[in-house]
């Protein structure tokens, strides 16, 4: 499959009173056509900020300080953040689904108006055609009797239903990529599963690529083809599902996987937490950010700067000196 989006050395920083926060510090990744990738990391590791940067939706005091976002041969960062070129990409080519379905819909407008708005804006549909398409989209994402519910307001819908509407909205202009920023985090587990299935079905049907941003390894394990693990604004390990879950190599990934209960382990096995806290992103040292919490650390780690992403086999990359294979 052809490469659709490539992000190179993206840096996004926030100027705060206590110093410069590099929320995203030189991340690079790519996504192929019709591929599902997962971007996994804990709160505050920069995964959402990186995605907002791709869409150029970072507002002051944040700024994109460097890097490039190549989409369809163009560097999106060359476009003015609110210019017509960028606006014609947002929603139409790259759509986004947000974390909070309860607040992501305008409470005073009917769902129909919000669904048709994008169709009219990007596809220049007339009222009737847009409304017809909106009803289709609503039934596609599993809203029963869509015809009669299109004039409902968001408060008539539950969280899961609203997220279905968000999915319908993101699909409405048949985008190339959908970025789902923790799409199921605020929903209960059964709804989560339904919605993930729905999203998978939909991206297959619409031949769309999907970026799942989450802190939940379980969510990506089932749906993504490749995974990027983020820590403190950088990607520390990337690889296919098999690489990450079968042979994790970065100490952070190994630590994360040890935190998750597995069905195949012996009874009575204790979960091993990762000690310590994530680092403060202000004035980060050049050495490995995970060093204080790492149980594999070498002398070299505290002397030399964080290594770049290094291939260990095939498409499996890590950013670490330590040999974690043995343990």
């Amino acid at each position: 499959m052809a490469e659709l989006l490539r992000v190179n050395n993206l840096v996004t920083q926030f100027k705060t009173e206590s110093g410069l926060v590099k929320a995203v510090d030189g991340i690079s990744y790519y996504i192929d056509e019709q591929e599902i990738i997962g971007l996994v990391g804990e709160s505050g590791c920069g995964k959402s900020v990186s995605q907002l940067s791709v869409m150029q939706l970072i507002s002051a005091p944040g700024e994109i300080a460097g890097g490039e976002v190549i989409f369809e041969g163009q560097n999106l960062l060359n476009y003015h953040a609110n210019g017509p070129e960028m606006r014609s990409i947002r929603g139409a080519k790259i759509a986004m689904i947000f974390q909070e379905p309860m607040t992501s819909l305008n409470p005073v407008l009917t769902l129909g108006r919000q669904l048709t708005e994008m169709l009219q804006l990007h596809l220049k549909m007339n009222d009737d055609a847009a409304r017809k398409r909106a009803v289709e989209l609503m039934s596609m994402v599993g809203i029963p009797s869509a015809e009669s519910r299109i004039d409902d307001y968001p408060h008539h819908f539950s969280g899961g239903m609203r997220q279905r509407i968000m999915i319908a909205m993101s699909l409405s202009c048949n985008p190339k990529i959908i970025i789902a920023d923790e799409p199921t985090t605020s929903l209960d587990v059964t709804t989560q599963a339904q919605l993930m299935e729905l999203m998978k079905d939909m991206v297959e049907r619409f031949h769309t690529s999907l970026v799942i941003v989450t802190h939940n390894l379980g969510v990506v394990a089932r749906y993504a083809q490749r995974i990027y693990i983020m820590y403190a604004g950088r990607i520390v390990e990337s690889g296919t599902i098999k690489d990450i879950f079968g042979t994790p190599r970065h100490p952070y990934t190994i630590g994360l996987l040890k935190c998750i209960p597995r069905l195949d382990e012996e009874e009575g096995t204790k979960l091993v937490p990762i000690n310590g806290l994530p680092p403060n992103l202000i004035n980060m040292p050049s050495t490995c950010a995970f060093l204080p919490r790492c149980s594999y650390r070498l002398d070299k780690c505290s002397r030399e700067p964080w290594p770049p992403m290094t291939a260990i086999d095939g498409n499996h990359y890590i950013r670490c000196y330590a040999d974690t294979k043995e343990k």
Partner: peptide
């Protein structure tokens, strides 16, 4: 500051809209 305004921007709406 509401999420739906961010969502609206992510859909490519202009400031005026």
């Amino acid at each position: 500051e509401n999420d739906y305004i961010m969502a609206e921007r992510a859909m490519g709406s202009s400031n005026a809209r």
